[in-house]
Each structure stands twice: as C-alpha cells, then as structure tokens.
Design a protein around this nucleic acid. Structure first.
Lengths: 234, 234
DNA sequence: CGGTCTCTTTGCTGCCTAGCAACTTGCACG
DNA sequence: CGTGCAAGTTGCTAGGCAGCAAAGAGACCG
C-alpha cells in the first residue's frame, strides 16, 4: 500500500473546515484500494465492515431482485462517499457497488464513522446532506416511474447522467464512462430494445449521438423539452 | 395550547435513554397542533421552519408533479418523525404532508434539531435510522416499479400498509385509515380502475375484503405469494 | 487479419393496462 | 328520509412497450 497523503482529500467539500493535522489522522486510518473494472467494491447483504470514498473512477450501485433481475440505483462519481450503512444504523449493505471503470477507493473500518462524525461535525453534516440528496433522488425517480412513460424516463435519466458526469466534446456532453443500452434500461425500468429504438430516433432528430457503450447529448435543451413531455414523441 | 407532558413521548423508541428532566426540556419547546382530516401539516417547497412528531393519527406524504399529477410517497403512523428536512441539510420540505384522519402533532422550530441531536445522541441516531429505513424503502419501491407488473405492485403495497397499520378484525388485517382505490393507485403508479378490478378479483378468491375507503387482508400468505409472482395472476 | 464475442439494431406479434364512458352504490347532509 | 355527490364497478377499445428472433457492427485476441 502506498503512503496516503491528505492532499488526496483536502480539496473535497466533505472535508472542508477540518484542520490539516486532523486530515492526516483520518488518512492514517484509511486503506487505499484499486478496484479493476467490473469488480465489486461491496456486495448486497454483506456485513457492512467499512465505508468508502471513491477517489477516482465511477461506480454503479445495483440492487438484485429475488428472481434474478437487476436494477441500477445510481452511479457514484469520484469524491462521493459510498457504503455508509453505519451512518444509517444498518448492519449490511443494501446494494452491490461495482466498478464501472478501474477505480481507486479509500476504505475505513465502519466503526470509525461515528468517531469521525463526532470529532468533525462538518463531516457528519456533509454525509447527511449526501444522504438527503440521495433520498430525494430516489423519490424523484419513483415519481418519474409512476407518472411518466418510457421515453420521458429515458430522456430524464440520460440528462441526469450527462449533467453528473458529462465531458464537453465537440459534439456535446459525453457521458464519461462506458454505458450500454442494457444499463440505461436497468435504470429506467425498460428493455434494451426500447432504449435502442429511442436513441436511434433521437439521433435521427439530432438530439444525441451514440455508439457502442457511449452516449453524447447534442441538444440538452430539446431533450429536456422531450423529458418534460411538452413535445411530440419519437 | 394544553400543557405538554413528557409522558406523551417517553414511551417512544426515539426518546429511549433520555433522562426525564431532559424530556421535560424537549417538551417545553414543543408546540402541539391538532390537524383536521384533510389539512396539510407542511407543504412542498415551503421553507422548512419546523420538524414534527406525529402523536396521533396518520399522515400521507405526497409529491406533486409539474403537470398536476400526484404520487403518494408514504404513510406516516403515530410515533414517527416527519418533516426532518433540517437533519438532511435541506432548506425546504420535499413533499406535502396531509392528515388522513384528525391528527395531533408536536412541532419544534427547525434549528432545534441539531441542538437535540448534539445533546441526545440516541435521538440523532434514531432519526438517522428512520432516514435509512425510508431511503431503503424508497429504493425498494423503485425496484418494484422497475421490475414488477401492476398486480404484484398493488399486492406488495397493500401488504405493506396492512403490516404497518393493520388492525386485527374477525375478517383479517384491516388497514387502519380510510384509503380509496385512487390512493392505492397513486402509490403504485396505476389507475383507480385497475386497482378496483384487482381488488374485486382478489375478493372473489377470498384474499381480501374491501369496501368504500376500506381494505382488509384476509389471507396475507396467499397475497404474498401473489406479490412475489409465484402464482397465477387474477 | 480472421474469428469470436458482446453490444446493438430492427421487424413482428401480442399482451397488459391506461383511458373513456356509463352505471351503481353508499355515505353525508339538510 | 330523500337528494346529491363522491367512491367504486365494469365493459370496451386502443396503444405502448415487452418479448422473441435474427441479423449487423464493433472490439478484442491470438
């Protein structure tokens, strides 16, 4: 394991207002892990032994249903906490986390969470803001699933991903990690076939460009109108 | 306003381990409100001035979509906290809360939340357990919406409500507050017509009994099988 | 550079369930 | 005790989208 320097985390909002000496203390107790693309960071039902900070890469949070289907709950970007079951009094992780690309994560033993939160109030508050945002997000997506049809849901999801991770290219906003039609289907409660048809239709209208494991939003504004159901469907 | 005694809250899990004298302090800062059936306790987008404890009754948490549809996010039972936006760093309430029957709530000014959490760690931890449970619930329902068809979703929802609030009657478990077909539809992303058809079909098979604003689960076990999709549909 | 595997596209069919409309039931209120 | 309204029921139709199947397109590997 390499030496862990506080500079890895000192720029993150979560650690603002914590003294450099304290950051060193925090880092001393962290382990750094490299997770190859496709490997699990933690798994559903597993005992929550650690909590994690994603330093680099992207991770996918996935829930499995009893009958073997899977649903993508969210994507995690670099700088975000994950696996914070302890903060919510849970004994096990509620989902799987899979590295979408090669990732670097920091891991701390679970019982340290409450210690950190007590010693560094801004850390605790920051975590709970994250939790609040995720709860809000989960409910928003539940409302979407309840009230919108597939095309609007897929449009909303693509827009969210582009906003969360989009990299500017000459064509538009490119989603920054490999994402298949199947992945988008698992986020929106549809099938890869339907997603494929939609992306093709959108591409013909100039809204997006897409290819193998790749989606670029060309015209966010028009796609947003479509997501809101205020224009003709494909 | 009537005198507020600590006995109103001393039995709740949330306040276990807090000294009677401290409970008195907590109660001194509370206002007690009676909310008639149908009135709002707080509203979506409104500034989060208070947080609440439902002392008696049931409340419905509802989100409105921009185009005027509404979705029922959850029901709150007596003894639960609600409107704890402050705990998650939110400035406004994320949804409406409506009294489903005449309710009694305690309200505290929002800024007291962090004070309580700091002085009474078990209170803070209890809140976050609640938040964790709600996040988990929201994600579970999202997965259901993604992977199950209407009949299974309605079955799951009716079972959850019966478990959460069910009163034993000679027929079975009766959901303890008035709930219409439309309400169930708004929890499951379907229409009142479909809910009506399902309840009728279930009643013919002896799984439930239902009437105007009333649902009784007669055979939870068989309904559960149906919810899991392991038996023939109606 | 060819073979293979995964991802993607696309046509066709069928079913679930939304949407509409008309009718019935039951509760509340004067 | 009748009247009115909200809640519930039910038949019919249509459409959105899943499911299946087969072919096409990249990417990776030896």
């Amino acid at each position: 394991m390499s030496r862990l320097d506080r500079s890895l985390i000192s720029g993150l909002p979560l650690f603002q207002g914590i003294a450099p000496a304290d950051l060193d203390v925090i880092m001393q107790q962290a382990r750094s892990l490299r997770i190859p693309k496709g490997d699990a960071i933690f798994e559903q039902e597993e005992e929550a032994h650690s909590f994690f900070l994603l330093l680099d890469g992207y991770a996918r949070v996935v829930k499995h249903t009893p009958d073997g289907q899977q649903v993508i709950v969210r994507y995690i970007s670099a700088g975000e906490l994950m696996g914070i079951a302890q903060a919510l009094g849970r004994k096990t992780y509620p989902a799987n986390a899979i590295a979408v690309v090669d990732c670097v994560v920091l891991a701390w033993p679970g019982q340290l969470w409450s210690e950190f939160a007590a010693r560094f109030p801004s850390f605790g508050a920051g975590t709970y803001n994250t939790v609040g945002a995720r709860l809000n997000d989960a409910q928003t997506r539940f409302v979407e699933m309840s009230t919108e049809q597939v095309e609007q849901r897929v449009a909303n999801t693509v827009l969210r991903l582009a906003n969360q991770t989009g990299k500017k290219t000459e064509d538009g906003l490119l989603i920054d990690f490999p994402i298949s039609r199947q992945d988008i289907a698992e986020m929106t409660g549809t099938t890869l076939h339907t997603v494929s048809r939609l992306l093709t239709a959108w591409e013909e209208r100039g809204l997006v460009k897409s290819g193998r494991q790749r989606v670029t939003v060309v015209e966010p504004h028009r796609l947003m109108l479509l997501a809101e159901g205020r224009v003709e469907k494909s």
